[in-house]
Amino acid sequence: MSDLAAPMKTSAPLSGVLAKALLSPFWLRVALLAVVLALLEFYGRVYADPAFMSPPSLIVKAFFTKIAPQEKILEALWFCVAQISAAYALSVVFGVLIGLAIGATAFSRTAFLPIILLLFAIPQVALLPLVILLFGLGPAAKIAFGFSHGVFPIIMNVVAGMRDVKELHLRAARSMGASRMETIRHIILPHAVPSLFTGLRLGMTMTLLGVILAELYVSTGGIGYYTRVFAESYDPAPLFALTGCLAIIAVTFNELVRIAQNHLTPGKRRSPTLKIPVKE
């Protein structure tokens, strides 16, 4: 296919190059986004009931008139960011440590991995009211809930990464005289890095989920309070704007992990593709 396309590029110089650039997946995605926004704008202005739906332009306006000037809302958003950071930091530290401990030997893996899988199979939302009861309405509950979501994918992917180390690499290291510690340090851990990052990215998605679930559940303060107020007053523009802020926060956090992954994976190896945790 690409062989066939190659001579065409030379025969149609400028317009061909331009068309190729514009037809690249990236720009097509940008175009797709623009079309969706335009349609929303059109629908929002012409047809939609203003009590339920706002055109994007009004949402942006609402951000500057109704969200940005309100210190309390900004504070709630910052709190949200802080909680996500704290919950994620805890998830990473404990996830990696527990993962390393479980992945260290075949015995610990067979003994403890099923327990982790069992815990992971529990739908944690069922515990949300309990977590709030235990930790109160403040940030502690949200951090705890974010942590309990984020930690499992990290543990599971660290264990999986350590387990899937190549037998041939282990044998080569042994023939070179590597000690057990050296094997872990130079073979098993570097091998687990891509899988670790898969875990870190999933962990981030799950931490975001946990914190936001808890935020929305507690409707007497924080983000949950404002979403309720906006929703109940049939004032969709600021609700959409607030949601947009949270979405931007979520995307930023995800991107940070992705950038870290791209810079910190040695040997330019690709991570196993991002998949949502599969319960085996």
Binding site: R171, P190, G267
Partner: peptide, 14 residues
């Protein structure tokens, strides 16, 4: 004794 294996055993992360 040094070993050279059937497949390349260069570690991809180094």
């Amino acid at each position: 004794v040094a070993f050279v294996f059937q497949e390349s055993t260069l570690f991809p992360w180094y």
